[in-house]
Structures are given as structure tokens and as C-alpha cells.
């Protein structure tokens, strides 16, 4: 009787021993910053003016932010940007992934080439596209003029700027969806397709009733990752539009970074970061739960 108990406790100790470095690291790298963030969010405090000290603000920072129409404007823009980008990237990514799962000559080269935009830094991509979309000497307007279309002031008007940013983000991240989609599509057993063919299913029927449902968990993970990433998009906009014109392309993450490191309103920036964190975590929890249910089915 004693031996299994001893074995069990030794096993537990081993598990604890293996886990403890990770747990400690997580506590230090995640728990401590989050606790600090929440603590600062209830205070008026500027890291730039330490001599002014820190004063208790209660819910003041939250109240200020949530009643500030400028912040709501950032949320609305972020929502629009996320929706447009994720929709375009999922549709295009699935389409490209579906084509790339087929075996054809030069497929591997094409696959690698398509991944290139994803390997660029968003800041570099931002500057690159900023010049390409320059209304006077940018290549995009040059091509538009070449086919008789009028030049577009891409970055000096709010609506074209939103679409231009969405196009750049889609250009960068569609390959990511395509990569995961290809992997998911290739993971579906060939016999299922053969059975569908024997049953006389059309290619569209096979795609919508076999391919997509069977690869849904992977595609769902891709969707979650892109949603989170799009929601916290900051660096692209810094280089691409600077948040303008006006504040029409300023995301919430952009506002957090600016409040924290340009204004040095540390308390207010912390409160905004907490709000953003709650939204992203809430969204992720809903989606992960849905993913689990999908797995159970």
C-alpha cells in the first residue's frame, strides 16, 4: 500500500519540479505585469514626472476614457479595420490555400514566394506601401492612370486610408491563413474525397460540405490569431499613416502606445490597456469555447 502512495507523491514532486520554472517565469513575465497594469490603472501617475508622485484615482481613468468620444472613435475604427481585414484574409487565404493543396509544377516555389510579405516587419511594409500609394509618384496610381482610371488620394482621406491599410494588412497576412488552410486541407484523408466522388458530389458541394467542415478547427484557430493580431495592430499605422488624416486611422493600440510613451499618462494608458486586454480576452474566450465545442462535435 505504501509503495504506490510513495510513487504518487514522488510523481507529483517531479511534476511540480518540472513545472515550477515555467510557473515562476509566467508569474514574473505575465502575472506581475498584469497586476501592475491594473494597479496603475487606478492611479494618476506619470512615469515622466516621478516627482509628482502617484495619487489614487479610483475609477477616474476608466470614467474619463469611456466618456471620451475620441476613444470611442478609435474603437469604431479598430472594429471596422478588424472586420474588413479578417474577412478579406479568411476568404482569400482559404481560396489560395485550396489552390495550393493541389499538386502542380512549381507549387513549392510559389508557396515560398507567397510567404514573403509575412516575413517583412510591419513598419517596413508600412513605409514601403506609403511610397507605393503616394498619390503623385506612387506605383499604384501610376498603374491606375495607365488603365485610364483617376488617381486616388489614398492616404490623405479617411475612407481610402482605411481601405489602403486593410489592403496592406491583407497583403501581409493572407499567406498566413493560406499556410494554415493548406495544412488543414492536406490533412483530410483522400478516401473521403473518393467516397464523395463515388456519390456524385459536385466540387462545390465537396468544398462546402466536406473540405471546410473538416478543416474548420484549424481555420478557426487561424481566425482567432488574426482577430487578436488585427485588434492590436499598431506598428503598421505608425509608419503608414501616422494615425491620420485626423485620427481616422488610429487604432486603440495606437492610442495606448501614444498615451503611454508620448503623453506619459501612465495611469490612463494602463486603464486603456486593461480595457483592451478585457476585450481581446473576452473575444478569445468566446472563440476558444466555440472551438472546444467544435472539437467535441
Amino acid at each position: 500500500m505504501d509503495q504506490p502512495l510513495q510513487k504518487r507523491s514522488t510523481g507529483r514532486l517531479m511534476i511540480l519540479g518540472f513545472l515550477s520554472p515555467t510557473i515562476l517565469l509566467l508569474l514574473f513575465m505575465v502575472a506581475y505585469p498584469i497586476i501592475s497594469l491594473v494597479y496603475y490603472s487606478f492611479h494618476n501617475f506619470s512615469a515622466m514626472r516621478p516627482a509628482d508622485g502617484m495619487s489614487w484615482a479610483g475609477l477616474g481613468n476608466y470614467e474619463y476614457l469611456l466618456t471620451d468620444s475620441a476613444i470611442w472613435q478609435r474603437f469604431v475604427f479598430t472594429g471596422k479595420f478588424v472586420f474588413i481585414c479578417v474577412t478579406m484574409q479568411m476568404i482569400l487565404g482559404i481560396f489560395v490555400g485550396y489552390q495550393l493543396q493541389k499538386t502542380f509544377r512549381g507549387r513549392d516555389f510559389l508557396f515560398t514566394a507567397l510567404m514573403l510579405p509575412m516575413m517583412l516587419s510591419p513598419v517596413v511594409a508600412g513605409f514601403l506601401w506609403r511610397y507605393m500609394l503616394n498619390s503623385e509618384w506612387g506605383v499604384v496610381n501610376f498603374l491606375l492612370s495607365g488603365i485610364g482610371l483617376p488617381k486616388i488620394e489614398w492616404l490623405s482621406q479617411a475612407t481610402p486610408a482605411l481601405w489602403a491599410a486593410a489592403v496592406v494588412d491583407t497583403w501581409m497576412w493572407t499567406p498566413f491563413i493560406a499556410l494554415l488552410a493548406t495544412a488543414a486541407f492536406r490533412g483530410i484523408p483522400e478516401t473521403i474525397y473518393e467516397a464523395a466522388e463515388v456519390d456524385g458530389a459536385s466540387p462545390a458541394y465537396v468544398f462546402f460540405r466536406v473540405t471546410l467542415p473538416m478543416s474548420a478547427p484549424v481555420l478557426f484557430i487561424a481566425l482567432i490569431l488574426r482577430l487578436i493580431d488585427c485588434f492590436k495592430q499598431y506598428d503598421l499605422f505608425v509608419a503608414f499613416t501616422g494615425g491620420g488624416p485626423g485620427s481616422s486611422t488610429e487604432t486603440v493600440s495606437f492610442a495606448v502606445a501614444k498615451t503611454a510613451f508620448s503623453y506619459f499618462y501612465t495611469g490612463e494608458a494602463s486603464a486603456l490597456a486593461v480595457i483592451l486586454l478585457c476585450i481581446i480576452m473576452g473575444l478569445a474566450m468566446i472563440l476558444v469555447r466555440h472551438l472546444s465545442q467544435m472539437g467535441e462535435r
Binding site: 514626472r49 482621406q157 479617411a158 494615425g243 491620420g244 488624416p245 485626423g246 501614444k258 503623453y263 506619459f264
Partner: peptide
């Protein structure tokens, strides 16, 4: 003034709004 970065950003945003014609 020490509040310069905030004041600047606000003025930048509003002047940019005037340039784009949104205000």
C-alpha cells in the same frame, strides 16, 4: 509647457481634420 506632447497631438489631429476636409 510640460504638456506639450499632448497639446501637439491634439492640434496635429485637428489641423489634419481641417486639411482632409472632415471639419
Amino acid at each position: 509647457l510640460p504638456e506639450y506632447p499632448v497639446m501637439l497631438d491634439i492640434l496635429q489631429e485637428e489641423v489634419s481634420n481641417a486639411i482632409s476636409g472632415s471639419k
